[in-house]
Design a protein around this nucleic acid. Structure first.
Length: 383
RNA sequence: GCGGUCGUAGCUCAACUGGUUAGAGCACUCGCCUGUCACGCGAGAGGUUGAGGGUUCAAGUCCCUUCGACCGCG
């Protein structure tokens, strides 16, 4: 049912090209995984997503458990049927929400990325006494719903049960994504807890049975010894593949990923969680990652930032108002084939819904095609 | 013609009995977003308070003149 085959390995980096087979189709890697958190890629129909060349979509356990509920999704025949996406799917375990609703919650703007040594961010962590929506203990995480404030609890076992109900092809172990601002001792403690949760996730997954492939998640923050230890421990467990999670140093994410890749079994796929800016994908592939998911292309699109070969274009800038050229000359996407920057700028300024759709089409097309180009480069020995 | 109400940022409006560099929302300009709390967040620019004169230590606030808008009565 689940299979991973490596077609070509790079001779001068950790890059490889391969194929992941799932019950709902194949994923040619390296691949970009489109994010559809709440069982929808925001602003796009599944047909649009497919027409961009996307092969796989990732949804979220925490969000769908809260709304509309995993039992309903199961009754509807699973995520594929429910959201009308026939291709391969992944679900994240809810582990990231331990971070986004925990340490990162509030006005502080703590990112999972940190740039170099960032001493000015420290005060935020301390000032971060805002009531968090997530609290961690050995058994799992207590969440307060961000929708209605109601209390919920996620454990490795619950995450597995929910993900089995959702029915994606690839599911992830329940983990803790730590803040990059957390001290070493906490990173270590959280990593070791994540390892115990990985074992529990695996046990529950086996108990439940079913066609899903479970990926374990490597943590360890920005520390080489922790990353190596985590990848050895998680890599030694009976997972179908691996996710690489957690926080990174913006400057040398690739280095951290290669510490991990070198310790993971070579014959299993590696998914770099939440990474997806163009340069990061290139660095990730070179460091041995096979798949990537990221909200960046769609979220940035909705906020008017468009990807081009020459960098980011903010369509809301005054210079776009009367610019009748497409977002990017030569781009093959539906948006660039049919609409001008001026039209996009108009839609954004008028707050028309089509703005989000056309911008998302462009950004996803850009990123998916970038990844396809990278795959060709690996296959043809150029990378 | 007489009486009244009101003129504050591009727009809609704040500013207790006159009291420090006249505020906000929207619009405008720019930036940010990496396993979605996210059609979100942040920053900036923008006003000789309709005009002119007066009272006062001090006027968007009080007085006079004038211009304009609206309402009422002739």
């Amino acid at each position: 049912m689940f299979n991973f085959k490596i077609e070509k390995k790079s001779s001068d980096s950790l890059a490889r090209a391969g194929v992941i087979e799932t019950p709902h189709g194949v994923i040619e890697t390296p691949a970009f995984v489109t994010v559809g958190t709440k069982a929808t890629v925001k602003a796009l129909t599944p047909e649009m997503v497919a027409s961009l060349g996307a092969s796989v979509v990732l949804a979220n356990t925490y969000h769908l458990y809260l709304q509309p509920g995993d039992e309903l999704v199961k009754a509807a025949g699973g995520l594929h049927q429910f959201m009308n996406w026939p291709g391969p799917m992944m679900t994240d375990s809810g582990g990231f929400q331990v971070f986004s609703l925990g340490a990162a919650f509030g006005e502080g703007g703590v990112s999972k990325f940190v740039s170099g040594h960032d001493p000015n961010k420290k005060s935020k962590e301390q000032a971060g006494n805002i009531a968090k929506l997530a609290k961690i203990d050995e058994d799992g995480v207590a969440f307060q719903s961000h929708i209605d404030g109601s209390a919920h609890r996620l454990t490795p076992e619950r995450s597995m049960q929910i993900q089995h109900n959702l029915g994606a092809d690839i599911i992830f172990a329940f983990d803790e994504c730590t803040s990059p601002l957390a001290p070493y001792d906490y990173q270590k403690e959280a990593m070791e807890r994540t390892h115990r949760w990985a074992k529990r996730s695996l046990d529950e997954h086996k108990r439940l049975g079913g066609p899903q492939a479970l990926f374990g998640i490597v943590q360890g923050g920005r520390h080489q010894d922790l990353r190596q230890e985590s990848s050895r421990v998680i890599g030694g467990m009976d997972f179908a593949g691996f996710g690489i999670g957690g926080s990174f140093n913006k400057e040398d994410m690739g280095t951290a990923v290669s510490w991990v890749s070198q310790n993971l079994p070579e014959n299993k796929p590696r998914h770099l969680l939440g990474i997806g800016e163009p340069e990061d994908i290139i660095a990730g592939v070179k460091s041995g990652a096979d798949t990537f998911d990221c909200v960046a292309p769609t979220r940035m699109a909705r906020n008017g930032a468009l990807l081009t070969a020459r960098g980011r274009l903010n369509i809301l800038n005054a210079s776009c108002r009367c610019d009748l050229a497409p977002i990017e000359e030569g781009c093959g996407c539906y948006t660039c084939q049919n609409y001008s920057r001026a039209y996009l700028a108009h839609l954004f300024r008028a707050k028309e819904m089509l703005a989000a759709t056309l911008a998302s089409i462009h950004n996803l097309y850009y990123l998916i095609n970038l990844t396809k180009r990278i795959r060709r480069d690996v296959l043809e020995g150029r990378l």
